[in-house]
Amino acid sequence: MGRLTDFVWRSDFFPRKLSFTREGKIVFVVSVGLGIAAVNTGNNLLYMVFGLSLALIVISGVLSESNLRGLRCSALPEIRPVAGRPATAALTVTSRRPRFPAFSIEAWPMVEGAQSDPARFLDVRPGQSLEGACRLTFARRGVYPLRGMVLSTSFPFSFFIKSLILPATGRILVHPRVHPLRAEDLPPASEGEEEHRPVAGRGSEFFGVREFRDGDNPRHLLHRRSAGRVEPVVREFEQAGSRAVWIALVNATTPGEGGAERVERAIEKSASLAVHLLDAGRTVGLATVSGAVSPGSGSAQGGRILDFLATLPSLEMNPPGIDEPIQAALATDSRAFVAWVRP
């Protein structure tokens, strides 16, 4: 017995949810009224109309059930939405039924705290796989667990909306909002040439000479100077603007009115800054009270920073010394520019 129920549970029995549409409620109320009228008058023709309304409701219930049978929805693809902006995800609905098409199908991922606009399919024929797009909008950054995939239908009469909740797991990492930056938001160091100090790198201008390390280009070996030394010597070139920029984000504030919001805005500002600087080809690191991301450049670094910011706790406490972890992280790179972002 237990095995049988387990089998049924695993194979095709998924929880269902039934809700009335507005029209469905009206039809239900009218039916109840009709029933009362028929019972109290004994008018057989009222019984007949009552029978019709009940039949519509019953058929509606049976068909909405069978209309979802044998349908499957693909897993939610990897998406990295930004808070407040709709993200589109492609979903594939497949009919495993041997016959009978399914009509009026909607599919969307069940994510708490997200607004979803489902992918819609007018009909799915037997054996057919159709791709549609659903849109998810998240108000806030963070991790959102995926609770399942929902298939729903209002077929055949739009009296009920029946939903089937297919199991699915995963999580959606929502990045903080990224705003266009105003000039005063940018750290002066990223523009001011006067603060420019030469930094060794892979640029073109000669910078100096140092010992060869793994990963250096052998073409830059200085053979003459290397002669007579244990370690070979290579030329070093200056890399334009290659000094790292550290974004020092204090994700903590004194408890009180709007404290969390202030931290949120600071996080958004840090994200915007990071994206802006990385787009400009800079090397960017991030130090916060709750950890740091070591400097890097390119879009992969952008992903790392945004991922980190997505789950960064917003602390409502401000004891002295809370920024010590930031100082510690900054201390590892004394030559870097530091852009402080405070709530």
Binding site: N44, M48, G51, L52, L54, A55, L56, V58, I59
Partner: peptide, 9 residues
Amino acid sequence: VFLVSLVFF
């Protein structure tokens, strides 16, 4: 629908 109506009736 027709048959179910009749049955109910």
